[in-house]
């Protein structure tokens, strides 16, 4: 199950795959920033951004709709933005009364809502593109290049390594729980909420202890290989001229888009 759930990387030989991870992270963040800076309702700007993402999808040999298909994760959150429709003054589109709320849908509100959803949808797609074309360990190296504290980077690296091991342990615990809780059909089983919560809590406690003991063994394995409290890493990802050029080009395009959106 990990392969589908935790691995987002797709093997490939495209120029996006070969681009230095650090540069990819920087461009991704700038792209999202550029999204945030596009005015509400600037559909042409949003459209150009999306077209770029489609082209990058193709360039990464993923097929044109790869990120599109995986971009719906943020949609449930759009619920939170629905109220934006009623939050702004403007031309009234409709009026509803819901209990204590007097809701006036305005054109400005609708525009804001749609823009928020589109922005988030574009940002999610470019983030998906990043993790699809970059191995996560390379992303961790990029964070190190970007001067994140060593301590935090190390914790993230361990987290990534042991997600797989610990989620397997969780699956085993969950299966064991399932195997022992036989529920006759058409009957509510499993005791009270408190009881169920205690079982879940015990599982969390057990997982904690196993993880704690595992960290002890890992510490021993680190000591055995010369760790003396100071971590060293060898980060072989160089940023070459090609990467610099591409980054400059991407930034140039983003600035062009902003100029066009704000002056044009």
């Amino acid at each position: 199950m990990h392969d589908s759930l935790f691995d987002r990387f797709r093997e490939g030989e495209s120029f996006l795959h070969r681009l230095a991870p650090t540069v990819k992270v920087v461009i991704t963040v700038l792209f999202i920033l550029s999204d945030a800076l596009l005015p509400d309702g600037h559909w042409l700007g949003f459209g150009i951004s999306w077209l770029t993402i489609l082209l990058l999808n193709l360039a990464a040999q993923l097929g044109w709709s790869y990120t599109l298909k995986r971009s719906f994760i943020a949609f449930p959150f759009a619920l939170a933005a629905i109220t934006a429709i009623f939050a702004l003054p403007g031309e009234t589109l409709a009026v509803w009364d819901f209990g204590p709320w007097h809701l006036i849908a305005t054109d400005a509100g609708l525009l804001r809502f749609l823009s928020i959803v589109v922005r988030s949808w574009l940002s999610v797609q470019v983030a998906i593109l990043l993790v699809t074309t970059t191995q996560f360990p390379d992303l961790i190296h990029a964070l190190e290049h970007l001067r994140l504290p060593r301590m935090l980077v190390t914790v993230i690296a361990f987290l990534y390594r042991y997600i797989f091991v610990l989620s397997d342990e969780v699956l085993r615990l969950l299966r064991a729980r399932q195997a022992r809780s036989a529920i006759p059909p058409h009957q509510r089983g499993g005791g009270s909420i408190l009881w169920r919560a205690r079982i879940a809590g015990n599982m969390v406690g057990q997982l904690f202890l196993r993880s704690y003991e595992r960290s002890d063994r890992i510490y021993n394995a680190m000591l055995a290989r010369g760790y003396q409290g100071h971590l060293r890493t060898l980060n072989r990802h160089g940023i070459h001229t090609r990467d610099w050029l591409l980054m400059t080009f991407a930034i140039f395009l983003l600035i062009l888009l902003q100029l066009f959106a704000h002056l044009g």
Binding site: Q135, P137, A157, R161, V165, R214, R217, N220, A221, A224
Partner: peptide
């Protein structure tokens, strides 16, 4: 160590 998941603690 016995358990390779303790011995291999790095992502790659």
């Amino acid at each position: 160590f016995q358990n390779p998941d303790d011995q291999l603690f790095s992502p790659t």
